[in-house]
Nucleic acid binder design. Structure first.
Lengths: 233, 233
DNA sequence: ACAAAAGTGTTTCCGTTACACCCATGA
DNA sequence: TCATGGGTGTAACGGAAACACTTTTGT
C-alpha cells in the first residue's frame, strides 16, 4: 500500500499536568504564554522534543525538572495519552503526548531553570476559564486520572513529603476528591493495607491534640482493598 | 529558549489491538509483515497517517474498517497511549499511537479491503513468540486494559452480537479473564445492574437445556457495582 | 424419565459504615 | 480541667461467595 509515497511527519510535543496539594487545595502548575497564539493565556508547561532522537518519556522528565527543579526520577510521572486533533494548534500541526506528574508541596516556589514563570494555581479557581489550546481538556483528564488513582493505588503518598501522618494522607484524599472522609474509618483502612505505610517510630509534637505517628511510604503500589469515593462520609 | 531552531518532526503511525472472542478463545487480529524489518513476523495492523492533516482517531477508525470491513462508528475504539521509544523502528523514528478495538465474532473471516492478510490469532497461542517492533508490549497493554474494562464497564457487550444470552456474556468474561465464574451468581449480578441488559422477549431454542432469554446491550456504560476478578469462582 | 442448561432462594462471610469510646497532648 | 485531634472497638448494613433447589427444554 505504501511504495513511493511520502510519509507525513509531524511536530511532537509533551505537555505536563503537574499536580500538588498546597494551601489546602489541589493545585496545578501553569505557565502564562508570552507569544501568540493564546498570548497571555494560561497553559500547561511543556514543549517540543529537544532533538530528533529524544525519547518522549525523557522529554517529559526533562520538562518536569526544568519547571520544578526536582529530580523527576523520584517523582510520579505517567503518560496520560496522545492529543492530536489537527487544528489544536493554529500555526501548524502538533501532536502532544500528555503526562501526569504528582509532586509534594514544594518548599520553594516552583522557580525552574527555565525563564518562564511557572505558577501554582488551584484547579477549583480556574472555574470556566479556558486554558490555551486543548489544555483544559488535558487538565480535566489528568485530574480525573489522579482521582481514580487514589482509589486503587498508593499514589496519594506521592503528594506527601517523605514523613507524614495518617491525617496528612487523609487530607490529600479529601482535597483531591473534594469530599470529607471519616478520620477513624480512614485510619483503619489505610493501616490495614499491607506495605502501604511504614511506621517510623517518630511522632508529631505540634498541634493541639494527641501526637500522631509518622510514616514513610511502603513498597505497595496497589490498594487491597481499594479505597472508594462516595463512601466514608 | 526556542528562537531560531528547527522543530523536529516525526512520522506518526497508529496501531490497532483488535480483540474478539472466537472459538472459545480471546483472539487478536494480526498481519504478517511482507517487508523488512521484521519480514515474516506477525505484527499489529496499523499504518502511517494517510495525510498531513488526518486526525489520529480518524486514522485508527480507517485502519479498523480496512482490516475488518466493519463500520468503526459502531465498534468500541479507545486510545491506549503513545509509544515513542526512538529506536523502536530501525529504519527511522516513528511514534505510534496505539488503539484498542473490541469487535464481535465476525461472520466472515476478516478479509479487509486491504490486500494484506489479516488473521485472527489466539492470544494464548502466541506464547513467548515475539511480535514485530514493540507490538508484544502494546498487545499486552491492550489485553490488560480490556480485562480491567470488563470489571468496571459494560465493555463485555462489545464482544457480543446484537442479541445475546447471559451465558454468552459470561463466556466472554471467562475467556477474557481466563477463569471460570459461577453461572448463578453471575446471572444475578449482571441482571442487577440497571440498564446493562435489555430483555428482548425472545428466547434461544437450540441447546440441550432450558431456553435462555435474549438481551440487547443497554444504555449503561459503567458497572454499579463492579464485577471483580478473582472471585465468583 | 433423564440430561442439560437457565434461573431463583438462602445462608454465610467479609468489608464498609456509623458512631461510641478511649488516649495523649497543650493550654 | 477542658479542648483538640489521634486512634480503637463494635454493631448494623450490604454485597459477594457458595450451593441447594426449581424451571424448561431436547432426547
Amino acid at each position: 500500500m505504501n511504495e513511493g509515497w511520502q510519509i507525513p511527519t509531524i511536530a511532537v510535543a509533551v505537555d505536563l499536568v503537574v499536580l500538588t496539594v498546597r494551601s489546602e487545595a489541589l493545585q496545578v502548575l501553569l505557565v502564562e504564554r508570552g507569544i501568540e497564539p493564546y498570548r497571555g493565556r494560561l497553559a500547561l508547561p511543556g514543549g517540543f522534543l529537544s532533538s530528533e532522537q529524544e525519547d518522549i518519556d525523557t522529554a517529559a522528565a526533562r520538562e518536569l525538572t526544568e519547571e520544578t527543579g526536582l529530580d523527576a526520577a523520584r517523582l510520579h510521572l505517567e503518560q496520560l495519552g496522545a492529543y492530536g486533533v489537527p487544528d489544536r494548534d493554529p500555526r501548524r500541526r502538533v501532536l502532544t503526548v500528555a503526562y501526569l506528574a504528582i509532586v509534594p508541596d514544594l518548599p520553594e516556589p516552583a522557580a525552574g531553570g527555565d525563564a518562564r514563570s511557572a505558577q501554582w494555581t488551584p484547579v477549583a479557581k480556574l472555574g470556566r476559564r479556558r486554558l490555551a489550546f486543548d489544555h483544559s481538556r488535558i487538565l480535566a483528564d489528568g485530574v480525573e486520572r489522579a482521582r481514580r488513582r487514589l482509589e486503587y493505588t498508593t499514589l496519594a503518598t506521592a503528594f506527601c513529603p517523605t514523613h507524614f501522618t495518617v491525617a496528612d494522607l487523609r487530607r490529600v484524599y479529601e482535597i483531591v476528591w473534594g469530599e470529607t472522609l471519616d478520620p477513624r474509618n480512614f485510619h483503619r483502612k489505610v493501616r490495614g493495607v499491607a506495605d502501604f505505610l511504614v511506621p517510623t517510630g517518630e511522632h508529631t509534637t505540634k498541634h493541639g491534640g494527641r501526637p500522631a505517628a509518622l510514616f514513610r511510604r511502603g513498597s505497595a503500589e496497589v490498594l487491597h482493598p481499594a479505597i472508594l469515593r462516595g463512601g466514608g462520609n
